[in-house]
Amino acid sequence: MNELTVPISEEAIRALHVGDTVSLNGVIVTARDAAHKYMIENFIEGKPPESERELYERLKELLSGSAIYHCGPVVKQEDGKWSFVAAGPTTSMREEPYQAQVIGHFGLRAVIGKGGMGPKTLEACQKYGAVYLHTIGGAASLIAQSVKEVLAVYKMELGVPEAMWVIRVENFPAVVTMDSHGKSIHAEVAEHSGERLKELLGL
């Protein structure tokens, strides 16, 4: 088990290889479809509008050396305080068009989700020193136990699942399935299953 603590160093990331299990600690941010589109349009390809300037600066601080978690949680609010009830990963592949730019722009060290990502993200992991961390899809009640505190929520107008939740995690369990050395378990499994399929179909 490899301990990773935010801010994560490039050295710690380069030491990881596919198949390694990690335990993540520190402050990370959830972001999924709408948030990625928002970041690309407002911060990366466009100049941040005045109204978004403050959030942009905040996200730069939060995300540098940290991780984005592809997750749209079930949350509850008691006495004004938010907490996570269920918080498993969503399918990461939908962020493939955006992820590489977001990694590079904000200096992310990890992207957390499920199902793996494609060649653009893998290349960004190699170039910038980042990893893709796989958590167990559907294991939402269990994973929520690693989320100790909700520190803030941004872009709530996108709705609860799509909002950016700033959370502090402890012993958050994950497996490296794409590393910073160009290896992807997802690409390997897909290649293997593709060969089996051809055999079964006699193609």
């Binding site: 997750c71 009830v85 269920a86 498993g88 559907g138 939402a140 009640s141 929520a144």
Partner: peptide, 9 residues
């Protein structure tokens, strides 16, 4: 705990 199995309900 009577909480959702998966957050995507």
């Amino acid at each position: 705990a009577s909480t959702p199995i998966c957050q995507d309900t």
